[in-house]
Simulated scan of single mutants.
Amino acid sequence: MSIYVWGYLKEYEIEKDEIFAAITNVLESGKLILGPNVSEFEEKFAAYCGTEFGIGVDNGTNSLVLALRALGIGEGDEVITVSNTAVPTVSAIVSAGAIPRFVDIDPQTYLMDTDQLEAAVSNKTKCILPVHLYGQCVDMDAVNEVADKYGLKVLEDCAQAHGAEFKGRKAGSMSDASSFSFYPTKILGTYGDGGMVLTSSESVRDKMKKLRFYGMESTYYAKEHGYNSRLDEIHAAILLGKLAHLDDYVSRRKEIASKYDSLLADSGLTLPVAAENNSHAYYLYVVRHPKRDQIMEKLKENDIFVNISYPWPIHTMDGYARFGGKEGDLPHTELAAKEIFSLPMFPTLADEDQERVCEVLKSILSALG
């Protein structure tokens, strides 16, 4: 049997009755868009994360774009972020009309190196966009200290950090606004696309509600230019049910990570490091080795399919060359991209499958010397 880095079918079988009941209730309600399920999920997810308001949108990328706009970020403004992230982080900045400026990562945690933030601030800088990567949080005390000093907005990218904590505070609660994705692979994912912006600012909430609905406050009259970017009732209903399981999902991910830590302790791989003051949610279990490509090829020969997040730093991509990035600008980011890969990680990963992954990995590593 093949083993994949992620799978949802076992989880679906366990939760199928609950999911179908939620979908049926929506279909029989007569309300398919911006109805009671969206409102309830917004309220409950915001409460879970420790913010006042949630605004559901159609996907995680648009949650970033609209949040930037709601924070007043636009044409010519600079946003400081990292290059070791998914393309949507940076495409959202550009889609908002802003300019991405990159800082390097901490080579142990792969998170934003907050020591580089102050030097990256210019007179055009308007926002810092830290990415809570792989399931753990950036040092938000350090981010907010720089933001406060220079009068900058802070937008947390929490697409990979549902349930993660920094100093006891949930990801998404430590900034002017935060962005979540509910893409199927996420710690809290639906069976399609979805996203949300969290904030405790009434003005950001009000702006977001207009932006996601054509700039309207009520039907047919646009107060400003807006978008069609709404979380639909069916996905909200599914997510409401899954939210009740979120802590269990995170707990199981931690169990799997702990087992990897134990089984691979002397394997020669560089294993994940939990950042200081973090409660890691383990969206991904990211390991590292200079012979990464050879290892992945051998795993594939054994029907084990892993992943790289991310093989190409964004500042080196053709699509973002106009912002002046080049190879050599971010040495820790660039080296990591050549060596990191993610092992299977999802709550229903079978113990025997995890053990097989580790057994095969250790055999490959032993042969490589």
Score class of each variant (00 low, 15 high):
residue 7 G to H: 09
residue 8 Y to K: 11
residue 10 K to R: 15
residue 10 K to W: 04
residue 12 Y to E: 14
residue 17 D to P: 01
residue 19 I to Y: 12
residue 21 A to L: 06
residue 22 A to V: 05
residue 25 N to P: 00
residue 26 V to F: 02
residue 26 V to L: 03
residue 26 V to N: 04
residue 31 K to W: 00
residue 31 K to V: 15
residue 35 G to Y: 03
residue 36 P to T: 06
residue 37 N to H: 14
residue 38 V to N: 01
residue 54 G to D: 04
residue 56 G to H: 08
residue 58 D to Q: 09
residue 63 S to C: 03
residue 65 V to H: 03
residue 66 L to I: 03
residue 67 A to D: 05
residue 69 R to L: 15
residue 72 G to N: 01
residue 75 E to V: 00
residue 79 V to A: 05
residue 79 V to H: 11
residue 80 I to R: 08
residue 80 I to A: 06
residue 82 V to Q: 13
residue 88 P to D: 06
residue 88 P to W: 07
residue 90 V to R: 10
residue 91 S to V: 02
residue 92 A to T: 05
residue 93 I to L: 04
residue 97 G to Q: 03
residue 102 F to L: 10
residue 105 I to S: 08
residue 109 T to D: 06
residue 110 Y to N: 11
residue 111 L to V: 03
residue 112 M to C: 07
residue 112 M to T: 11
residue 113 D to V: 02
residue 114 T to Y: 07
residue 114 T to K: 09
residue 117 L to F: 10
residue 118 E to W: 11
residue 126 K to Q: 09
residue 127 C to A: 13
residue 131 V to C: 13
residue 132 H to G: 10
residue 132 H to A: 07
residue 132 H to S: 11
residue 133 L to I: 12
residue 139 D to G: 11
residue 140 M to N: 13
residue 141 D to N: 15
residue 142 A to V: 10
residue 145 E to H: 14
residue 145 E to A: 15
residue 147 A to S: 13
residue 148 D to H: 15
residue 151 G to R: 09
residue 151 G to A: 03
residue 152 L to A: 03
residue 154 V to T: 14
residue 154 V to R: 10
residue 157 D to V: 12
residue 169 R to L: 12
residue 171 A to H: 12
residue 173 S to G: 05
residue 173 S to E: 10
residue 174 M to Y: 07
residue 183 Y to D: 15
residue 189 G to Y: 05
residue 191 Y to D: 13
residue 194 G to C: 06
residue 195 G to Y: 10
residue 197 V to I: 15
residue 201 S to N: 06
residue 203 S to I: 00
residue 204 V to P: 01
residue 207 K to C: 10
residue 212 R to T: 14
residue 212 R to A: 04
residue 217 E to Q: 08
residue 217 E to S: 08
residue 222 A to I: 00
residue 225 H to E: 15
residue 226 G to W: 11
residue 226 G to L: 04
residue 228 N to A: 13
residue 233 E to L: 04
residue 238 I to R: 08
residue 240 L to K: 06
residue 242 K to D: 05
residue 242 K to G: 00
residue 243 L to W: 06
residue 245 H to V: 01
residue 250 V to N: 05
residue 252 R to V: 12
residue 253 R to E: 09
residue 254 K to H: 08
residue 255 E to Q: 15
residue 255 E to K: 14
residue 257 A to D: 03
residue 257 A to S: 02
residue 261 D to T: 01
residue 261 D to A: 04
residue 261 D to Q: 06
residue 262 S to N: 10
residue 263 L to G: 01
residue 265 A to R: 14
residue 265 A to M: 04
residue 270 T to L: 01
residue 273 V to G: 01
residue 277 N to R: 13
residue 286 V to G: 01
residue 289 H to Y: 03
residue 289 H to A: 02
residue 290 P to G: 08
residue 291 K to W: 00
residue 295 I to L: 12
residue 297 E to T: 14
residue 300 K to F: 09
residue 301 E to I: 02
residue 303 D to M: 04
residue 307 N to I: 12
residue 309 S to Q: 12
residue 311 P to S: 12
residue 313 P to E: 11
residue 314 I to E: 11
residue 314 I to L: 15
residue 314 I to S: 09
residue 315 H to C: 09
residue 316 T to W: 06
residue 319 G to H: 05
residue 325 G to E: 13
residue 327 E to L: 15
residue 329 D to K: 07
residue 329 D to G: 09
residue 332 H to K: 11
residue 337 A to Y: 07
residue 340 I to G: 07
residue 341 F to T: 10
residue 342 S to P: 01
residue 344 P to D: 05
residue 346 F to L: 02
residue 349 L to V: 02
residue 353 D to F: 00
residue 354 Q to V: 00
residue 362 K to W: 01
residue 368 L to D: 10
